[in-house]
Amino acid sequence: MSVNAKHLATFVLGAAAGASMYKYLQTEEGEKMLEDLKSKAGNLRDEAEGAVDKVPDYFEQLKTKGTDTLKETFPDAEQMLRDLMDKFTGKKSEPTVE
């Protein structure tokens, strides 16, 4: 693979951008920007950890509400699914009592 002028120009521009960013971050304004970024990243991490803690409760609630809604909308759905499974497995399951 040969290095042509386009690759060399891209490398030089990238190095210049990196050098100028380094110089900017050494200023008081750059340090303030870094502190703001660190603070925002910490807040985002805390928010994500909080969301992870809530996931099991959310899915349990979703499962419960989904089951209740399904039973209200299609009251015979559970027995129909059991009959269908019995047909495929060749076993006879107990009828449900509500």
Rank of each mutant, 00 (worst) to 15 (best):
D53T: 07
K87L: 15
L84S: 15
L70T: 08
A48N: 05
D68N: 14
V55T: 08
A17Q: 08
A16P: 02
D86S: 15
K71R: 15
L70W: 03
E47N: 04
R82I: 15
E29Y: 00
H7D: 12
L8P: 00
G42R: 05
A77P: 00
A15M: 12
L25R: 06
R82D: 03
A16C: 07
A77S: 04
Y58A: 13
G30L: 01
K92Q: 13
L81H: 06
K92C: 02
D83G: 14
M33Y: 02
D57I: 04
Y58Q: 07
A51C: 00
E72R: 14
D86G: 15
V97M: 05
Y58F: 15
L37Q: 04
E28R: 05
Q61T: 15
E72H: 08
K6L: 11
D83Q: 14
P56D: 04
L84V: 03
V52D: 02
E72T: 14
V52F: 04
V55A: 13
K65C: 03
Q61H: 07
S93I: 00
M85E: 12
V52E: 10
T27H: 02
E78I: 04
G42T: 02
R82W: 01
T73R: 12
K87Y: 15
T73G: 02
E49S: 04
V3L: 15
D53C: 02
E35T: 03
G66L: 09
F11L: 14
K54A: 15
A15E: 06
E49Y: 07
K71S: 12
S2I: 13
F11V: 14
E60Y: 05
G18A: 09
G90E: 11
D53M: 09
A5N: 08
A19H: 03
K92P: 01
K6H: 09
A19Q: 05
V12K: 14
L62N: 03
Y24H: 10
G50Q: 08
L34N: 02
V12F: 10
D36T: 07
S93V: 00
G90L: 13
T64M: 11
M21F: 13
K91C: 03
M1W: 06
K54I: 00
K71Q: 15
E60V: 06
Y22M: 07
V3M: 12
K91M: 13
T27W: 03
L25Y: 05
D46H: 04
F74E: 10
K23V: 08
G30K: 01
A19T: 09
D68H: 07
D86T: 11
S2F: 11
Q79M: 10
K71M: 13
R45K: 13
